[in-house]
Design a protein around this nucleic acid. Structure first.
Lengths: 202, 202, 202, 202
DNA sequence: CATGAATGAGAATTCATTCAT
DNA sequence: AATGAATGAATTCTCATTCAT
């Protein structure tokens, strides 16, 4: 009963995607292994030929989520002023979200959940993203576009946080506000300019 | 056995606080009713003399959380420039967090969880807070301190979001960064000034 | 906190009647002690000042049922031919049923339930009734109205059984057929004449 | 594990039979799902692979009971005078009772319990039986063997009722009276001739 | 490999009963 | 006497996991 590696990978992918859908919709505890298997077109037992436990399945879903998102926006070339570059990065991230909503929802949930035990895996996803942001900010710093009194590391996290926050807001309002289209501009404006009035700030 | 209303309320409070601790630490699903009761010094069955079900208990914990936090910072008088006022508000919120960490954690979790079904109760908590923020921003708007191209409602949500985000960051890093002390200043700076360099922006 | 014996008896009566209503509607297991007490206007604990346990309460309800029904039709004077006398007895029983429907329902349930452990108490109720029937049948026997090839004891039980059966039928059809009015005549006809055609039988 | 359909049906049958034994002995409420499973040689959980709930299990037990009894006596050919035919039908029913005592006990309990919510399923069982009785009575009617002043439908129910009654009496007296052997003759005599003395009736 | 039957730990909930007030 | 808070045994049902086929 051997199957080729390709077939095996294909089955695993199908299981991961169905699992992602369930974890995204119901959370870890309320996700039912049987339904995941059935939803993917297999029987309950099959899942255990690919994952040792529910925990491992969840872990692999998160890893897969991190892998997919990173992969997608890493291909993009980003350049220009910090403002432009960040916006392009946000656009890339939003486009990933469109394609991989379930996976992204899980990542966001985990990233914002104070109790999450998946910090490490989340970092796998955040890592490359934050590095990109950091690089952009550092370049902006040299060009004098970015404030100098806060560490770049912290600013990077703040940027990612704001973006994530807008996603949550988007989902929670049923897509009303903000819409996916306006998120990149919004996050950049909020992040770089803030809510203050320019003239007064100086 | 017949106890006084005060005693009954005291028992209920004890149960709610223990429940809050558990929900904050383990989440809804992983919280065990039996352990909550035992932790509060009662037997399993007692909890059902006060709450009809685990769901109801959770609901009441959230309501209580909203009630407590609102109550605490509503007593504060807030004034001055938008920047000062917002900072004071954030300070008030942080001081609530110090006192009611479990309840706040639950609120934050629910507020940031895309799946949460407790949007209404969360709004009970956010409502008064957002109103306060809105009022401050409107006054700042008149004084020309706040940008005019974004609706105050959206800016208010953004402020709350950033604050919440910093809490999560605080918890997730085990209190390392940001510390509770620096949160008020940080959130105001990020929110009003943004990450951009002043001189360049103008 | 003493109350007079009359008061005590009155409370007990109220509890028994409410209990009868519940046992009749829900059966023993599904009857809730708390609801019985509440329904009677008392708190849960009060029941235990009058009955040692749910079992004892049920036992006393049955005894009370037997006592009440026996008492009611024992006062009636019954005479005439076997047919007339039996009909009058059935009428007396039906009139009891009208007044004490809950208690009667419980008795009937217990009488017809193969599992019932209350055979003795049921006999308390059946006893006097069966004796009456037996006496009537014996008198009828002497007058040649009743067949001689079956023991009177068995015929008596058969009569009671048929009557009981009609009650069940009455309740199960929601009072449609037979109605309480037609039961006495029906039971006597079925019991004495049977379904056979007279002319052919001889 | 993957077992054949036959094996699955066999397991289900075993569970149903054990359940019938328990329901017959203890009634619905006092029957313990765990003990049913264990008694059938399985673990608690297994029962839920075959029935969704205790209610469903009970319902299927009743259906199975109805199915089994109907099936058994429907194969019998019944003929002759009404008296003979009814006696043969009763004999058929008694022989079913011998084979399927638990199932029959449950049917009888449900049929005679004023509170039963299984009237429909009971009718499934009664239906075919009553039809048979009705047919016999109608034929007897044509031959002038049966009284004409009562609807056949009611007479049929009465016959079934008497038979059922004798079962209860049989069980309640521990098989003393009536014995299973004498039931067919007894029910027919009581039903057709009644308790009256022939000579006097005419 | 795929299957799904069997398992049993675990959890929520109910409720008769006790007993301090 | 009346109350109702506290208790904990008991019960139903769920579901991740194992494993024979």
């Amino acid at each position: 009963m051997k199957i080729s590696i390709e077939q095996r990978e294909a089955v695993k992918k199908r299981l991961l995607e169905e699992a992602a859908r369930h974890f995204a919709r119901f959370g870890f505890d309320a996700t039912n292994i049987n339904e995941v298997a059935t939803g993917a077109g297999y029987a309950k037992g099959t899942i255990y030929n690919y994952f040792r436990s529910k925990e491992e399945l969840f872990g692999e879903v998160i890893s897969e989520a991190a892998r997919r998102t990173v992969e997608r926006y890493q291909s993009r070339q980003i350049s220009g002023s910090a403002r432009t570059a960040l916006k392009e990065l946000a656009e890339a991230d939003v486009s990933v979200l469109r394609e991989e909503e379930s996976f992204m929802k899980i990542l966001v949930s985990e990233a914002l959940n104070p109790r999450s035990e998946n910090y490490d895996v989340i970092l796998t996803h955040l890592g490359p993203f934050i590095e990109k942001v950091s690089k952009i900010l550092e370049e902006g710093l040299e060009k004098g576009e970015i404030r100098t009194d806060k560490p770049v590391a912290q600013l990077s996290i703040a940027f990612l946080g704001m973006l994530t926050l807008l996603y949550v807001q988007h989902w929670k309002t049923g897509g009303i506000w903000p819409t996916l289209e306006e998120i990149p501009d919004l996050v950049v404006t909020l992040f770089i300019d803030g809510a203050g009035n320019e003239e007064v700030k100086s």
